[in-house]
Design a protein around this nucleic acid. Structure first.
Lengths: 163, 163
DNA sequence: GTGTCTGCAAATGATTTGCATTTCC
DNA sequence: GGAAATGCAAATCATTTGCAGACAC
């Protein structure tokens, strides 16, 4: 009933859940789509960037924090430092490979989906789930202020567990 | 043309702009609506909470960070520590006096408007502006997952300066 | 080779916490 | 008086940065 909604790991906890069994992450490959993806965005295909591309984009759409990416990368056998993960996530975001999520709290999250879509946000759990753009209908938006243009538009639907 | 949009201080900079001239903040009052507002939410009306209520709710709707509230409170003559500001903002949020904004980046912001409304977000500047709920039309929302109920729904319209 | 990356560890920024002191009811 | 709130400084996270060595082209 909710194919459009996918949970992601609880941001308040330590990142974990790295390297699901059965998911083959293309760590170590010196060619292929990951290389082209990086080149297409003006980034040199270094080993750690390729590893992080593998972690980020081999499992469908994801909402991740730097810590999560770091431990998944380590779990997948990548050699990378936490600082590089932070720097790389920022570079990927600037390059358009990722989008930074607007989230409550003092931690940054990144979305591997860069097309326009929306989110359920479970307030008490800090959990976010994707909502396909097709499931939300917006029929009216305000005109932007002078000199500005609309780049995108996201809906956050806040949820609470029924009680 | 954009009465519905109100700017707030740049989150990336030091908080400032405290205690606008001409704005009377009811610091020091031991009674009145601030006391009742706190009591109504189960919070003891202490001196610093009253001062913070004054800072937060005397100037219309605002988007503030802890640092901003802190320096405005000091500028308004309140005696309060930064730690207490952090703790108080969290308590106010739990009590429903404030709403934590979903923002990109590693800093928390709070909105003194607790009713449902929306935001413009200027991507390169980290600036947010209110958009009245009337200016956005949502005609379709997905059914929430089993056991969940919708608490609210906010639209973030991302803007960019035309170039 | 040369300019770009990376790693490490230290610096910075944001937020929380422990505990003695003060304030509210 | 007793519970709850506050202040301060130290502790804890999250993130960034400086710089020497490693890697891509």
């Amino acid at each position: 009933m909710f194919e459009a909604a996918r949970a992601y790991a609880d941001p308040s906890d330590d990142a974990f859940g790295g390297a699901d069994e059965g998911v083959v992450v293309s760590i170590g490959r010196r060619d292929g789509p990951a290389v082209e993806r990086l080149r297409a965005h003006g980034l040199r295909p270094t080993r750690q960037r390729l590893d992080l591309v593998g972690v980020l984009f081999s499992q469908g759409d994801r909402h991740v924090s730097a810590e999560q990416v770091y431990s998944e990368a380590l779990a997948a056998g990548a050699k990378v430092s936490l600082a590089t993960v932070y720097n790389t996530l920022k570079q990927f975001t600037e390059a358009g490979l990722l989008v930074e999520l607007a989230a409550a709290g003092a931690k940054s999250f990144f979305d591997t989906r860069v097309d326009s879509h929306h989110h359920f946000y479970v307030e008490d759990e800090g959990v976010m789930m994707d909502v396909s753009a097709d499931d939300v209908g917006i029929d009216r938006l305000p005109t932007p202020p002078e000199g500005m243009e609309i780049v995108g538009c996201e809906v956050t639907i806040r949820l609470r567990r029924k009680r």
